[in-house]
Design a binder for these strands. Structure first.
Length: 804
RNA sequence: GCCGGGGUGGCGAAAUCGGUAGACGCAAGGGACUUAAAAUCCCUUGGGAGGCAACUCCCGUACAGGUUCGAGUCCUGUCCUCGGCACCA
């Protein structure tokens, strides 16, 4: 055997990456594509630590899919960009004492280098960064469209304030009362004027169209729960003075058991409902609650507190006067900010009633004497007048109808979803393009004046005032009112990063245009993205915000589709030593050293082989060697085949295995089952290598199938086989179902369901033939012998089972 | 508490429709090559029992039941685990 050069990924990968750039291999014709395929993956936040293997896992999985589609003849557009605004970047910049405007470009440069090096099929002509004025000009433009449409609005609201970030954070960024970004910092309650997007107006639509999307069920369920639709009724409780207190309940069937009312302490009715002799206590309690943060109020397992207002309201069902209380377990932001308490059938009301000695009346009886508070749904009503004996569901309908006739009830739907607070009192974000005028109020910056540039200020540190650092930049701060020309003040809040990322996918195909956010023709050709792959950690926020923004843009006539991501797949998470990778844990794995040691192709395949792509797994570098061995063996086999130059035909066995392998790799790759696709290719190579001579024809299709996974090696071997053009111009190998199924099969012979023998027959053999052959088997006869055959079960090409 | 996902060898995992459990890979053990090591190649490897042997038998997919000729897969209950939501009325 002649000398075979050794497989040297470092030089080979650099060579092919350079060629792809020179030859514009990864740059589809955006204007005249034959079969456009927009392969989108979630763009990274360019952290200072660089790309870690978790990112690379996600990008590789998405890249494989794009390359796979490319081999199927699609014009694949696979762009990449950077989500570089936001608290994360800014806090890091503060920590190291460098301006983010200096830091971010460095980080991006590192990411670019890493992204090229792992072999992503990116179209670098269309790279974008959210911090680029050419980009955020249009983020601001989108804000203005929403402002004009009345979907962006200002309101004073109790907001979550993180003392560490010194900024408002969204409800979504509060984890169990603590700041998402500072797990040891409690979030406080503050009342501030904020910009909100009216996403709740779209709750029903966001929920409804969810069913039509090609998304995994788990992702859809997360969104559905987040939107949190509850069906119920609004009931009216009247006071003797004539005040009508609306409450929302999902269990109107239990209204006969409502023995008191509870309002949120901030409820606007509290003042008028408070009796003189209770006023001092009530005010004291309200002050106490306000001092608390929004969060500790929401921790569910503490003892209940509350105060009696000294007044009563009439239960619309019983006509009884029931006491009105305030308590912080009732939240102003949900429902009407008031509840009817049914202590017999609600755990929280039960706790409260027990603590304050309020009456508990059972109105639903389930099975055998369940302890209170039972929340049974399948019981029947008791102590409920004419409705006694009715099952809950029916009672619910009838009671609502009965009260509705009296004007005391309305069927209603409530959502858990809150309006999206997009204001951030920070520096590192796109300024909200508004000028406040004493006469005209908040006025949008005229579109021709966009972008409102984020001024370069050295002192961008936030302070506790609740006002963005931008307010300190006086020349920037003062601006003329676009409407009346008077002296006005710029809005100093910047917008949430989730707004940047809500629309980035719209920009990619049109990055070269500065006079429009996206080009209509490009958009109709390429949008919405054909496939979107990303992390499930964004299943709720990013995907929901993006869907919302897209729906609004569609309504306003700016895009031609309603849903941004018709097909979405979530990948799993790469963990290290059983824990999520994080800087604080010190278990972040950077791919560079592994790429250097093993090659990008090996690392790509290892990441895809360590577990199911959609589940993720633990990064353990000891097993990388297995993938590298596979590539080494292929390298050697390919060189041997070329050296031997044998035109030998494939053996029947190799041919059959080849067609089986093509079939498996094709279906598995399409389903993102990359780990099993790789094992199929390994099996195939094992089969090929068992032959006395390795035929080149047996390897060519393997090289094409491998190309999405190990693109550099595939290119090299493809050219070794004498092809001049890129392997990505080759057609995906076809399989022949007949050949895949050719040959003999082993049929299992069972007696009473236990395997007792095997017979080899040609595929498709008749039942009679298989049974006859099976009956000749020694072991089988031993078990059947002397007993009467009650039944024979036959499964074509698989098994025969004798029941005796 | 509510809603999802999951529990299979020493390890990562496979197993279209209910039809040979453990493919593929790692690790481990044995052997070949080598002065030696690395690399490479070959063999063994779920547990147990029996046999000189080609082999044979029993057990085995978290646990307890059930349906079925046949269950990792379906049903009921229990335990554990991961993720999401959570005074949401």
């Amino acid at each position: 055997m002649r000398d075979i050069p050794s497989y040297d990924p470092a030089s080979l990968e650099a060579k092919w990456q350079a060629r792809w750039t020179e030859r514009h291999t990864n740059e589809p014709d955006l204007d005249q594509p034959r079969r456009p395929f927009y392969n989108l993956m979630m763009f990274p936040y360019p952290s200072a630590e660089g790309l870690h293997v978790g990112n690379m896992f996600a990008f590789t999985g998405a890249d494989i899919y794009g390359r796979f589609k490319r081999l199927h003849g699609c014009d694949v557009f696979e762009p990449i960009g950077f989500d570089a605004f936001g608290l994360h970047s800014e806090n890091y910049a503060l920590a190291v004492g460098t301006h983010p405007a200096k830091l971010i470009p460095q980080n991006i440069e590192t990411f670019r280098r890493q992204l090229r090096r792992f072999g992503g099929m990116f179209d670098w002509r269309h790279e974008l960064s959210t911090t680029d004025p050419r980009y955020y000009k249009w983020t601001q433009w989108i804000f203005l469209q929403l402002f004009k449409a009345g979907i962006a609005f200002r309101k004073k609201a109790a907001v979550n304030w993180c003392p560490k970030d010194m900024s408002v954070v969204a409800n979504e960024q509060v984890i169990n009362g603590y700041c998402e970004r500072h797990p040891d910092t409690k979030v406080e309650q503050r009342f501030l004027e904020q910009w909100f997007f009216h996403i709740t107006r779209y709750a029903e639509r966001l929920l409804r169209t969810l069913d039509r999307l090609d998304w995994s069920d788990s992702t859809r369920t997360l969104q559905r729960n987040w939107i949190g639709r509850s069906e119920g009724a609004e009931l009216i409780f009247e006071t003797p003075a004539g005040a009508k207190i609306p409450v929302f309940t999902t269990r109107p069937d239990t209204v006969f058991g409502a023995t008191y009312l509870v309002l949120a302490p901030e409820h606007p009715f509290v003042d008028q409902l408070t009796a003189e002799e209770q006023r001092r206590q009530v005010n004291a309690y309200r002050r106490e609650v306000q001092g608390k943060d929004l969060v500790s109020r929401r921790v569910g397992d503490k003892t209940k507190t509350g105060v009696f207002l000294g007044s009563y309201a009439r239960n619309p069902a019983t006509g009884e006067a029931i006491p009105i209380w305030i308590a912080d377990y009732v939240l102003m932001e949900y429902g009407t900010g008031a509840i009817m308490a049914v202590p017999a059938h609600d755990k929280r009301d039960f706790e409260f009633a027990t603590r304050f000695n309020l009456p508990i009346r059972e109105v639903v009886r389930g099975g055998a004497g369940e302890p209170l508070p039972s929340v049974t749904e399948d019981g029947v009503l008791v102590n409920s007048g004419e409705f006694d004996g009715l099952p809950c569901r029916e009672a619910r309908r009838r009671i609502v109808a009965w009260l509705q006739a009296k004007g005391l009830a309305t069927p209603q739907v409530q959502y858990r979803l809150h309006d999206w607070c997009i204001s951030r009192q920070r520096y590192w974000g796109p300024p909200i393009p508004i000028i406040h005028c004493d006469r005209c109020g908040p006025v949008g910056v005229p579109e021709q004046d966009l972008p409102v540039l984020l001024p370069m200020i050295e002192d961008f540190r936030p302070d506790a005032s609740g006002v963005s650092p931008l307010a300190r930049h006086k020349e920037w701060y003062y601006a003329k009112c676009p409407q009346c020309g008077a002296q006005g003040r710029r809005e100093t809040d910047v917008s949430d990063t989730f707004l940047d990322s809500a629309w980035y996918y719209l920009r990619y195909p049109s990055t070269e245009f500065d006079d429009r956010p996206w080009d209509p023709k490009r958009s109709t050709t390429w949008l919405p993205p054909t496939s979107y792959i990303g992390g499930n950690e964004h299943a709720v926020l990013h995907l929901l915000y993006s869907r919302f923004v897209t729906m609004v843009l569609q309504e306003l006539g700016h895009v031609h589709f309603e849903e941004p991501f018709p097909k979405f797949r979530a990948h799993g998470l790469i963990i290290k030593d059983g824990a999520k990778m994080s800087k604080s844990r010190g278990n972040v794995v950077i791919p560079d050293a592994y790429i250097q040691k093993w090659g990008a192709d090996t690392l790509r395949m290892y990441l895809m082989f360590l577990g199911p792509f959609q589940e993720g797994g633990d990064f353990r570098d000891t097993t990388i060697i297995g993938v590298r061995r596979f590539l080494d063996k292929l390298w050697t086999a390919a060189h041997e085949a070329v050296a031997a130059d044998s035109a030998s035909r494939l053996s029947a066995e190799v041919e059959r295995k080849l067609h089986q392998t093509i079939k498996r790799v094709t279906t598995d790759t399409e389903r993102l089952d990359y780990n099993t696709a790789i094992s199929a290719m390994m099996e195939y190579l094992n089969t090929v290598r068992d032959e006395p001579v390795v035929a080149r024809q047996s390897l060519e299709p393997l090289v094409v199938m491998l190309a999405p996974y190990a693109p550099h090696l595939a290119e090299e071997l493809w050219s070794l086989f004498g092809h001049e053009r890129s392997v990505f111009t080759a057609p995906w190998p076809a399989f022949d179902e007949r050949l895949a199924a050719a040959g003999d099969v082993e049929v299992v012979v069972q007696v009473n369901g236990k395997v007792r023998g095997r017979v080899t027959v040609s595929r498709g053999a008749s039942e009679a033939e298989v049974v006859a052959r099976a009956m000749q088997d020694e072991a089988v006869r031993k078990f059947v012998n002397g007993k009467s055959l009650r039944k024979t079960i036959y499964v074509q090409d698989r098994l025969v089972n004798f029941v005796v």
